[in-house]
Write a protein that binds this DNA or RNA. Sequence first.
DNA 1: GGCATAATCCATATTACGTCA
DNA 2: GCTGACGTAATATGGATTATG
Length: 331
Amino acid sequence: MELALSLGGDTPKPILFLEKSSSSSCSKDVGFCMDLGKFSEELDEVGRRKRSRNHQEIISKGSSTDHPSLQLDLLPFSPVSRNTSSSQLCFPWLSQNLASEPGLTHGPGGGKAILDMNRRQLVAEEAEEGAALSSPNSEISSFQMNFPIYRNGNLNGKRDHSENYNSSSRASDEEDASARKKLRLTKEQSAFLEESFKEHNTLNPKQKLALAKQLNLRPRQVEVWFQNRRARTKLKQTEVDCEYLKKCCETLTEENKRMQKELQELRALKSSQPFHMQLPATTLTMCPSCERVSTTTTSFAATTATATPAATASNTAALHNNHKLISLMTK
DNA sequence: GGCATAATCCATATTACGTCA
DNA sequence: GCTGACGTAATATGGATTATG
């Protein structure tokens, strides 16, 4: 399915060619490649979501768009057919559409370059990666965007698995077609994505496409990167929160211990006091004005100490005021 | 307007690959 | 060279939201 990408949908280099062309396969003004890229991505997305459920849905989706020439040929790229021999992957529409495209006048051998690139990549890579990851040696590499593609750490020259992707080794490596490929982003790409993430941790479609174009990645890769980045951020935040709660727990435990100790001391003190000084006095008081009954709990000593007639009268007045307030509030 | 369906985006869990000690 | 740990790209899945008929 993702071979649609090899048409240049998500590949910046062909975009430069094709944006200028008046697309015969696309009725929109956006341009063949951008639109096709979106379509490819949609197919990719839908395929990813639906392929395990019902491949027929992909067909129906494809047929409902403005790109009737694409949908049927994309079907072989379902995981079921991942083991399909790359030599069997014939896409007549690819050569027809590109080679015969009137707008594709990009210098001598340009169309052939694309075809060659596609052919190489068809052989060299899984179809799903298609032309999104173009060979640095491609004739059209001069149209490279700001961020060239480096596979498998080739940037630093630490590893060079490129030979694993050439036709000779790959041809005998058909059984590996089902193996998942993993692109290691370059430092520049990661840094750029990080900067973008700082500005906004979610992407709208335009931003996604722009980033993808600028970084020479597929929009889906940008999307996945942001998803994973959000997940990492959340994970780290969770760790920070966990640490904070852990410290809070420790603090509270310490405080609990301290208060338990204090309680024990108070109990010990209480047991050493005379009985009448120990118990708090709970008294029922009736308000003489509204005849409300309220409970007041004070220490016996405090009760006796403040039980002068004047104080009692003042307390009664205050109590009645409280009752009036309560009555107003509860109305 | 209410409903069903599809499409899209996102979060989350998981897998698998690349790197390094 | 082998191996395990780790980071992370990629995948799978389901929920929420929105658009469409």
